[in-house]
Each structure stands twice: as C-alpha cells, then as structure tokens.
Design a binder for these strands. Structure first.
Lengths: 242, 242
DNA sequence: TACTATTGTCTCATTATGTGACAATAGCAA
DNA sequence: TTGCTATTGTCACATAATGAGACAATAGTA
C-alpha cells in the first residue's frame, strides 16, 4: 500500500483516498519454468500480502492500479486485467492493519480509516520477469517473487485472491492469447510451451502445441537462436506486431 | 436503489451503507425469442437506469446484491455472477442523482452522500422470465423489461455496463452451461436453442446443436409436449439435478 | 565421422463439427 | 381412413481439429 506519510493527509487533495475501497494485484512472472507472483512482507510482523493500494478521490480506478504497478515494478504498459471484487466480511480484520501500522511506528489514530472495512478490486498482471525492479512500499521491507505453489501464508483473504487469479488466468489463456506477455519479446516455441504448461499445470504435447500456435497466425518467425548445445537450434518468435 | 427513507438514516446501524460503493445488476430474461433486461425509470425525470443499490456496512457484498435482487424480482436462489467493477471518473455526475432526488421530493441535503463519486460492482443475473414479479424501488415508478437491442437511453455508464454484461454472458455460455437458467425447469430443445441464439446473436444449426447438448450428458429427457400443432411433438428436457 | 539431444514437419488415427437426408410423428383436411 | 404439412429425432457422410508417433535435419561433442 502507498499513502501519504504526512499525518495531515486530508489536507492534500491529490493524496486523499476513497474510503473503504482498495485494490490488490496478483503480479505474475515466469522464471525457472515456474509461475511466480510478487509478495510483500511487512516490517517486523512476519506478515505477507499482495501488493495493493488505494484509489485517490479524483482518480479512475484503473489508473490507480496502473500507478501502483508502476511504483512497485518500475514497469509501464503492463498487461493488466481486473478479475473480481472481494467484499466478504471475513476480510474485515482491523487487528491485522493495526499490527502493521504499529510495527512501522505509525500512530494508529492518524490512520484510523485504514482499519475500516475494505472492499478490494483485484487485478492480475502479466509481466516479463527479467524487466522488473521490485520496490517495497512504505510499510513493507521486501517485495519478492514466490512460486505459486510455495507461497508464504498470506493475510486476510489474499490466498483466495491468488487462487481466483490463477483460475481466471487459466480460463483466459487461449481466449485472450495471453501467454506471450510473460516472456521477453523474442522467445522459442519451447519457452512458450513451458509458459502454457506452468499456467495450466499440465504437460502439453510438443507437436500439437507447435502446430496450434503456428496455425493461429500471430507469431512472426525470426532467426535461430544458437544455444551452444549439441542439437538443432530453435527459431525465435515474436508476438505479431512487435 | 433502496435506502432508508428516514432522514436520520445514520442512526439505524443496519441501514447504514458503505459510502462510495454501489452495485448494479443486469437482470436477463428470455421472452418472445428475445433477450431482455430489467430497467427502472425514475419518477418524473424520464431517466432510465439499471436496478442497483448500496452495501450495508455489516453486509457481505454478494449478500447485498442478492437482497436487492430479491426485493426487485421477488426471486431467491438466482443465478448470479459478478463480472466487472466500474470506477471511471465519467460515471461521477452528481447532477444526475440530484435531479432524481429532487424529482422525488427528497431534501438533497439529507442524502448528500448519494451525490458522491461511486464505484460500482456490476453483476448479471439469469432468471426465468415468467416467475418475476418486478417491483420498483423508492425512487422509481416503474421497472420493466426491455429487449437488449431496444433499450431506452441509460444514465451514467449503464449502457457500457449492459454491453459488458452481454459480452461476458456470451463468453460464459458454453464454459458455464448457463443457458438453461433463462428457461422454466422443463423446456424443449428448440427453446434451448432459441436461448443460445438470442445470447450469441447468431442462428445455430439444429442438428449440430441437438447433438452437442445431448452429448454433454447434462440434460434429462422427460415426456413429450403436445402443443396442438400438426407435427411431431418434441421431448421436454430438464437440467440434470432438478 | 559417429553420436546425441532437440527441433520442424509429416502422416495416420481419432474425435469433433458441418451439412444434408430421412423416417417418425401430431394434428388437420378430405 | 387416408393423404398432407410442419417439425422432430437420428443417422450418414464430408470436413476440420486434435492426438500420437515417425522421421529427417540440425548443432554441437567425442
């Protein structure tokens, strides 16, 4: 989360946030043949959470999320999709935020609004793992990649949010041709296949996968990539239009 | 929208709402071989809008929507799906709500919170047209069915909401096997096909459709329905499990 | 030059879908 | 009763998509 550390926050219009409304982002990256997401750890609490934030009173919701992503990853023009808004009562646990504020030396009274009930609009983002320069926010001392199947325990309903993000990503994989957003602009067919396998959680048949991808007509073939290994070198591809 | 008409609303805890947060519902029904949705018209304004409402401070978001649907349609246990949360600045038009309040004889000062910026969580519902007993809310004098392709001009971004609801419904049609929710519990294959055609907006091939539906193994075949017409009578089907 | 791992492509089998044919009605008219 | 018509359920065949394996073409190493 990001918010003005000035105790008199309310006095700066651009820094006033809509109460009760937050967003959380599940930021997917791909590395070591695994799907990973960015998780923040709050100072001195051992608590882990998705990167999220608040919406300024004069700011479009989607802009708020892009702003947060830029601050957290240094990246612009990210593939981003809103997938669900979480509004159960179980996610209302003021003790959690209180602990976090106290551990950071903030006077709880000055941030009482953060202890309120929040409804959170959740987004997932797909980014090129190698381009990220992850930056923690004011309350957290780290933001790190964790494999999707080996996450630390997350606060509130963040584990549900991650699960739903993953499910939505699986459903959208073919329909929105989304796999290439997790790779650098040039990639081999095998790399693309590994991305699909990581997202779906099942192995795919090499020949069928290659035929299918090529038949879509959205890949442009470039030169080969010589890896130095003792075998035929694969072609590099890019997503049509890059 | 539904809210306590007592001017001292804030004093009744169950009737206090989360500020800045609303929901809107696109309620689909099927009649006359057409997709229709429920639209409300506000008293003395000529303004049309989707049925919506607010979330009580101690109420889960999804419950709030189901409550609103029950009040508006008299139905319980409705097929309901959240599909997007709208948070642009274009949807902030305090004049609109002000006009509506004034036209209903409410003192605007007592409902100033309704003139604020709202983020709206949008849901679509699929219901059996014939079971609905539509009830207008405190501000509107009618709630009526309109064919999807012949809607009155809607306030704010409600036309966008409807368009996105329709798109999402189309995408979910096969994946979630959702068509039967628009029909009575027993229906003919032709009726089901008409629903699919209305949702997708394209004609479907009778034999292929029938084969596909039967192969899914989710339909139970019952007795025939004799319509009095001079031709072979079709079987009735139900969704497996009813 | 032989050998290995990997890649690109082809072939054939299997499954799904498009397209039309056809027999089986249910009521009506003769 | 016997045709007649519109509609339904099912089948048959053609076409398209996918599963599954075979195989030749490398890029390096031994």
């Amino acid at each position: 989360m990001d918010f003005n550390q000035d105790k008199h926050m309310g006095s700066v219009p651009e820094q006033r946030f809509l109460p009760h409304i937050a967003y959380d982002s599940v930021i997917f990256g791909f590395s070591g043949e695994q799907l990973k997401i960015l998780i923040m750890e709050y100072h001195n609490t051992g608590m882990f959470a998705l990167p999220g934030g608040f919406v300024r009173v004069d700011e479009p919701l989607n802009d708020a999320v892009r702003r947060g992503l830029r601050e957290r990853t240094g990246l612009d023009n990210i593939y981003l999709e809103q997938f669900y808004t979480f509004g159960s009562l179980e996610r209302y646990q003021p003790e959690v935020m209180e602990t976090i504020l106290q551990a950071n030396g903030f006077a709880v009274d000055d941030f009482r609004w953060m202890l309120d009930r929040f409804i959170s609009v959740a987004y997932y983002a797909l980014i090129n793992y190698n381009k990220v320069n992850a930056q923690p926010d004011a309350l957290s001392d780290s933001i790190k990649w964790y494999p999707l199947n080996d996450l630390p325990p997350l606060i509130l309903d963040h584990a549900d949010i991650v699960a739903k993000a993953h499910r939505t990503l699986q459903e959208n994989l073919e329909r929105k041709l989304v796999g290439m957003n997790l790779l650098p602009s040039r990639f081999t067919m095998k790399e693309l296949q590994k991305v699909y396998e990581a997202i779906l959680g099942t192995p795919l048949r090499r020949t069928t996968f290659q035929r299918k991808m090529l038949s879509l007509g959205i890949l442009k073939r470039h030169e080969k990539r010589y890896s130095g290994k003792a075998h035929k070198a694969p072609y590099l591809y890019s997503f049509e239009g890059e």
